[in-house]
Amino acid sequence: MQPYQQNQYAGAGVTRTAAEVDQGLRAFMLGVYNNMILGLAISALVALGVNKLAVAGSEADAAMRLGGVYLTEFGRVLYTTPLMWVVALAPLAFIFLFSFRMDKMSAASARGTFFAFAAVMGASLSTILIRYTGASVVQVFFITAAAFGSLSLWGYTTNRSLSGIGSFLIMGVVGLILASLVNIFLGSTMLQMGISVIGVLIFAGLTAYDTQKLKEMYLYGNFDGEAAAKVSVFGALQLYLDFINMFQFLLALVGNRNN
């Protein structure tokens, strides 16, 4: 996904010294990571809250059993009726909103929309707490965090241009989506494993690529304060999606499922 263009928010006549650029870049990237971390925290809290409401404390309190988990009536409605598709697809509505309305949003409205998106995504992600053990989810989350941090740091510090792999990685994302849709009908375990492995690699590459792209956007975009704040939100969205997708593919690959 490419939710912005390099010169879209460029300020007019903004002249900066080298020291101001360096200081501004650090503040800009810190804003990106702060927004992203807040988004992840919101998603985690919402996912835990929804899971708490959806999972029954005992068999006697359960409306039904799904796999190895007993669900409350709320959980039954959320995970076994058409409402589950509404919850699953709701984050896409926010992605389209960002794509079509980003140029008209203020920094504050963009940040609020991003946090609302993170909350909706948290509700969608609550299903992983049904499918996988809590210990497995926590373990994979920290593995993903360590990998993401290392890859993002490398993308920020490397002198090697990663622009050449960007189009290739985005084409890979399209291929992943198509393969996943096909596998809904095939139900192939081997194909799903291949999708997960390739998905981890693609979003690992996108993490480094997007980090470098954000750095270069700031250095060459000549943003004013409001524009920089707005782009930092869209940058946070980009890295948030890289993290979440890498986490989900890695969890599908090595996570322990509930019996």
Rank of each mutant, 00 (worst) to 15 (best):
G57P: 02
L71I: 04
V69D: 03
L40W: 05
L71C: 01
T81D: 06
A54K: 08
R65M: 10
I42W: 01
A18I: 08
P82I: 10
E73F: 09
T72V: 14
M64I: 13
G67I: 11
G57F: 02
V21D: 06
A12S: 12
G75S: 10
G67P: 08
I42Q: 02
K52L: 09
A56W: 10
S43H: 07
K52E: 07
T81V: 13
F28I: 08
A44M: 08
L71S: 01
L66C: 08
V14F: 00
V55R: 04
T17M: 04
I37D: 02
L30T: 13
G68A: 11
E73H: 15
P82W: 05
A27C: 11
T15S: 11
N51R: 15
G39Y: 08
E73C: 05
V50A: 14
T81C: 08
G11K: 02
V77S: 13
T72G: 10
A54S: 15
T80L: 15
L53V: 00
M64L: 15
A41I: 15
T81I: 09
L30W: 10
Y70N: 14
D22H: 09
D61K: 06
Y33T: 14
A18S: 12
R16C: 01
G11A: 12
P82H: 12
I42C: 01
P82E: 09
L78C: 11
L25C: 01
A47K: 03
A47Q: 06
T17I: 00
L38H: 04
T81K: 04
E20C: 00
L45D: 07
A12L: 11
V21A: 05
L45Q: 11
N34D: 14
A56S: 06
G13Y: 02
F28H: 03
T72F: 13
N35Q: 12
L53N: 03
F74S: 07
L45A: 15
S58E: 12
L45G: 09
R65H: 07
N34L: 14
L48Y: 07
D61S: 12
L71W: 02
L40V: 03
I42R: 01
A60N: 04
Y79H: 13
T15H: 11
N34G: 14
L53S: 03
A19I: 01
D61E: 15
F28A: 04
R16W: 08
T80N: 15
E59L: 10
L83H: 06
K52Y: 12
D61R: 05
L78S: 11
A62N: 11
G68S: 07
E59M: 12
V55D: 00
V69L: 06
V21G: 00
L78W: 12
L25H: 03
F74K: 07
V21R: 13
V50D: 10
K52D: 11
V69M: 09
A56Y: 06
V21Y: 00
L25P: 05
A41T: 12
V21H: 02
G31N: 12
E20Q: 09
G13D: 05
R76F: 14
